[in-house]
Lab assay of single mutants.
Amino acid sequence: KAKLLVLLYAFVATDADTICIGYHANNSTDTVDTILEKNVAVTHSVNLLEDSHNGKLCKLKGIAPLQLGKCNITGWLLGNPECDSLLPARSWSYIVETPNSENGACYPGDLIDYEELREQLSSVSSLERFEIFPKESSWPNHTFNGVTVSCSHRGKSSFYRNLLWLTKKGDSYPKLTNSYVNNKGKEVLVLWGVHHPSSSDEQQSLYSNGNAYVSVASSNYNRRFTPEIAARPKVRDQHGRMNYYWTLLEPGDTIIFEATGNLIAPWYAFALSRGFESGIITSNASMHECNTKCQTPQGAINSNLPFQNIHPVTIGECPKYVRSTKLRMVTGLRNIPSIQYRGLFGAIAGFIEGGWTGMIDGWYGYHHQNEQGSGYAADQKSTQNAINGITNKVNSVIEKMNTQFTAVGKEFNNLEKRMENLNKKVDDGFLDIWTYNAELLVLLENERTLDFHDLNVKNLYEKVKSQLKNNAKEIGNGCFEFYHKCDNECMESVRNGTYDYPKYSEESKLNR
Rank of each mutant, 00 (worst) to 15 (best):
D33R: 08
S28C: 12
R154W: 08
W267R: 10
P88D: 11
L176V: 15
R232H: 13
V12G: 10
Q67T: 11
P197M: 10
P227Y: 09
S122R: 06
E119Q: 07
H24E: 00
G275E: 12
P140C: 13
S101Q: 15
V149K: 04
Q238T: 10
S218V: 12
I256M: 14
F11G: 15
V194W: 10
G170P: 00
V181H: 09
A25K: 01
I229P: 05
N162H: 13
H53M: 13
Y160A: 01
L206H: 08
D51H: 12
M242P: 01
T14Y: 05
T254H: 15
H53L: 01
I264S: 01
V6T: 11
E102W: 03
V96T: 07
N27W: 12
R90A: 09
K61F: 05
C58N: 10
N183A: 07
E116P: 07
L163A: 00
L164T: 01
Y213W: 06
I132F: 13
I112R: 09
L78Y: 09
I132A: 11
T74M: 10
F225Q: 12
V46H: 07
R232M: 06
S172Y: 13
I73S: 00
L60N: 08
G252F: 08
E250D: 10
L49W: 07
S200T: 11
L166F: 00
S126Q: 15
W267V: 12
N162W: 07
D15V: 12
S158Q: 14
C58L: 07
V194M: 05
T31I: 01
T247W: 12
A16R: 03
L191I: 15
D171C: 03
Y221A: 05
T43P: 00
R154E: 13
P251K: 03
G155I: 02
N222T: 01
N162C: 08
E115R: 01
R161L: 00
N178S: 15
L164H: 09
S85Q: 13
L117C: 04
H142D: 01
A269W: 09
R274N: 11
S45P: 04
V40M: 11
A259H: 12
L272T: 10
N39C: 06
T43C: 02
Y180V: 02
R232Y: 05
Y221P: 00
P99E: 13
A2V: 13
A269L: 01
A25R: 00
G210P: 15
L60P: 05
L7T: 12
F270H: 15
N39K: 14
N209T: 15
F225R: 02
V32S: 11
L60T: 01
I255S: 01
L68Q: 02
V235N: 09
W192G: 00
T43L: 11
Q67C: 01
F11D: 07
Y207F: 06
V147C: 00
E50L: 12
I63S: 04
H195C: 03
L189M: 08
L117S: 01
S215F: 14
D17P: 04
Q203W: 04
Y180H: 08
R129V: 06
E50P: 00
A265I: 08
G62P: 01
V194F: 12
V194A: 11
W139Y: 12
N47L: 03
E131A: 05
A217K: 03
E97A: 03
L68C: 02
D51S: 14
N145K: 06
W92C: 15
L87D: 02
D113E: 13
S91Q: 13
R236V: 00
S28F: 03
A16W: 11
F144S: 11
E115K: 03
L5S: 13
S45I: 06
R129Q: 06
S273E: 09
P134R: 11
T14K: 03
P99F: 11
V181C: 12
R129D: 05
L166W: 04
A231N: 08
E187K: 07
F276H: 11
T260G: 10
V181F: 10
L191M: 14
S273C: 00
L7P: 06
W192E: 05
V188L: 14
V190K: 00
L248I: 15
I19Y: 09
N145L: 03
N54K: 11
L48E: 10
A230H: 13
P65V: 05
T34Y: 07
S219G: 10
N162F: 03
H195L: 02
G22P: 12
K70C: 04
P251Y: 00
Y107I: 11
T31A: 09
V32F: 02
M242T: 08
L206E: 08
P99H: 14
C106A: 08
G185D: 14
N47P: 10
Q67A: 10
Q67D: 14
G210R: 03
L248G: 05
G193F: 04
W76Q: 03
S218L: 04
W92Y: 02
K1A: 12
D113P: 02
S158D: 13
I281V: 04
W92N: 07
L176W: 03
V42C: 10
A16D: 13
K38T: 11
G75W: 09
H24Q: 11
T18P: 00
P233A: 10
A212C: 11
A2I: 08
R232I: 08
D201L: 08
A259D: 08
N47Q: 07
S199D: 06
G155W: 09
L166N: 04
L248W: 02
E97T: 09
L111Q: 01
V190S: 00
E116R: 02
L164Y: 12
N27L: 05
G79N: 06
N72K: 09
S198M: 10
V188E: 02
S126M: 06
E131Y: 03
E37Q: 11
L191R: 03
G104W: 11
Y114E: 04
D84P: 05
F270V: 02
K234G: 01
L189K: 02
K175W: 08
R232N: 08
H239N: 10
K1D: 01
N27F: 05
E119M: 11
D171T: 12
A212G: 10
L87E: 14
C83E: 05
F159P: 06
S137V: 10
K61E: 13
T148Y: 03
Y245W: 08
I255W: 00
G62E: 08
S157M: 11
S200W: 01
Y207M: 07
S93P: 04
A259P: 01
P81N: 06
T29S: 12
F144M: 09
I73V: 15
V235I: 15
K61P: 00
T177W: 11
E136T: 12
Y245K: 00
G22N: 05
L8N: 08
N27E: 04
G69Q: 14
S101F: 03
Y221D: 05
L248S: 04
C20W: 14
H195E: 03
Y114L: 14
I73H: 04
Y173M: 11
D253G: 14
E258N: 07
R129P: 12
L249Q: 03
K186V: 12
R129K: 15
P88R: 09
R224H: 10
C71M: 15
Y268D: 02
A217T: 11
N209E: 02
C106W: 12
G69M: 11
N262P: 03
K3N: 07
P266I: 05
S273A: 12
F130E: 09
G55H: 09
E116N: 08
S93T: 02
D30I: 04
L166Y: 04
H142E: 03
A231C: 07
E258K: 09
A64S: 10
F144W: 13
E82M: 13
Q238V: 10
A2H: 05
L164M: 05
V235K: 13
F133Y: 14
H53E: 05
A231E: 08
K169A: 13
D201R: 02
P174V: 08
N162S: 10
